[in-house]
Design a protein around this nucleic acid. Structure first.
Length: 450
DNA sequence: AAGACGGGGAA
DNA sequence: TTCCCAGTCTT
């Protein structure tokens, strides 16, 4: 059988299969370009089953491009909470504003215009043009590359940019006349339901008979794909600061910077405990130095808090980082004359920790740090436990004096806020902090003390 | 070309 | 537990 015939067989049988087996998904019920757009952004790196409830809520709250463009950014982020890759949400809203200003609120149908929208790359542009407007443009995602690499026995590494270009050329040739909308979705549907990554269901595949990969016994070794680098480990110390006095019943949170990891999301205050040695986890820090470092870093941000004890351990996995979290329950302290001194020493400990970052090649930076500064840590912990004693302990310490001069009460300019349970439904948190804060408000850490 | 950027589901 | 999934933007 020739290649031309193999291609025709693929297109015809796949399309027939799809018309019978297509899933009824919320964004497939209307030919609304805005719905298509939102769904395609949400579906990047995210499973259909995960997206469905998010999509329904998002469209309910922002039913049109205009509604999305005019919404407060925090509200958009809240609607994305838990989906991950939050720049998608910020780019989507920025693009909605582009559509309002440049195209009068109507989705453009021109390829260059669609591609120019923030967050829209080669895949999403092709998906929007084909699904929303039935234009014969390829939409090559991971599913499509897997299906094509198997059916046509393509050995190219799908992680390479050149392979995607090659796949796009092939996918474009396969689109039956006038059927781009259904065919592109059929290709992805097959990859999601039948031609799955680990255990493909070849026996129910509509194009099994002419699948070169299966015929060659290669269905389990295709596509060729270079492995991703393992994520780097980070040990972090997290504070759940329980408010007192005016802040009773509240907990201290802060908003992350506008760029970078988890941009503009809210979180519990935390600090990097120790740098990891190359390729190895730093390992947990002993409680005493951990609590001193936490108190010091909180003070550097303008907050007096006494760590009470370890509340829990937690882990949070990103694609490029693994956070191992030591979570400490802390109590807000009253302002008092001793606090600047306590703070100075805590800051010294904090600075010592920061200096420790330079020794990242050391195999056990954390334990070394703990040993070297154990006296400082001890005195900080002691001071925080008994603020009335040892007030003059630090007078002879130059670093403490310097720290006093430089302490301004505000560190990185992050926004801090004392919140109660009722505030949780307005602010967007990464899942890990959502869980920790919910557990705290549910009383899970009530018995933590020294 | 390589790294940054989340979170969940399946084996 | 361990493994897998993989679009776009930035540098």
């Amino acid at each position: 059988m020739g290649l031309l015939e193999q291609k025709r067989h693929f297109s015809v049988n796949l399309l027939d299969w799809y018309m019978v087996n297509r899933r009824d998904l919320p964004w497939r019920r209307h030919n609304n370009p805005y719905f298509t757009w939102v769904s395609e952004i949400m579906l990047q790196q995210t499973r259909v089953d995960t997206v469905i409830p998010y999509f329904n809520r998002f469209i309910g709250n922002f039913p049109t491009v205009q509604a999305l463009a005019e919404a407060p950014e925090e509200e958009v982020l809240k609607n994305w909470e838990g989906l991950g890759y939050y720049s998608r949400a910020r780019n989507l809203q920025a693009a909605a504003r582009q559509v309002m200003e440049l195209h009068g609120g109507e989705m453009p149908q021109d390829k260059q215009a669609v591609f120019a929208l923030k967050g829209v790359g080669p895949y999403t542009a092709g998906a929007i043009l084909s699904i929303a407007f039935n234009q014969p443009q390829p939409a090559v995602d991971g599913n499509v590359m897997r299906v094509l690499s198997r059916y046509f026995l393509i050995d190219e590494d799908i992680m390479k940019g050149s392979t995607r270009v090659l796949m796009e050329e092939l996918a474009g040739e396969l689109i039956p006349e006038g059927r781009a909308r259904d065919f592109n979705q059929a290709l992805m549907e097959l990859g999601a339901l039948v031609c799955t990554p680990k255990a493909p269901h070849c026996l129910t595949c509509p194009v099994m008979e002419q699948c070169s990969g299966r015929i060659a016994g290669r269905e389990l070794t295709l596509p060729v794909k270079t492995k991703a680098k393992p994520p780097r480990p980070e040990q972090r110390l997290v504070a759940i600061v329980e408010g007192r006095g005016a802040h009773r019943g509240r907990v201290l949170v802060r908003q992350r910077p506008a760029t970078g990891l988890l941009a503009r999301m809210w979180e519990l205050p935390h600090v990097l405990a120790a740098p990891a040695a190359a390729g190895k986890a730093a390992g947990p820090l002993a409680d005493e130095p951990a609590m001193a470092l936490l108190a010091g870093s909180l003070w550097a941000e303008g907050f007096a808090a006494r760590p009470e004890g370890l509340a829990t351990h937690a882990e949070h996995v990103f694609s490029h980082i693994v956070w191992s979290l030591q979570v400490y329950k802390c109590t807000e302290q009253d302002q008092s004359n001793e606090l600047p001194l306590i703070a100075a020493e805590a800051r010294a400990a904090y600075d010592a920790q920061a200096a420790g970052k330079d020794h990242s090649s050391s195999a056990s930076a954390a334990s070394e740090l703990a040993t070297t500064h154990s006296e400082q840590f001890h005195s900080v912990t002691s001071l925080l436990s008994n603020p009335s004693e040892d007030a003059d302990l630090l007078d002879e310490s130059p670093v403490a004096y310097d720290a006093q001069l430089t302490l301004t009460g505000k560190g990185d300019g992050l926004t801090y806020r004392w919140i109660g349970p009722e505030d949780m439904d307005k602010m967007a948190f990464p899942n890990i902090f959502l869980k920790l804060i919910s557990s705290y408000f549910a009383g899970a850490y009530d018995d933590v003390n020294e």
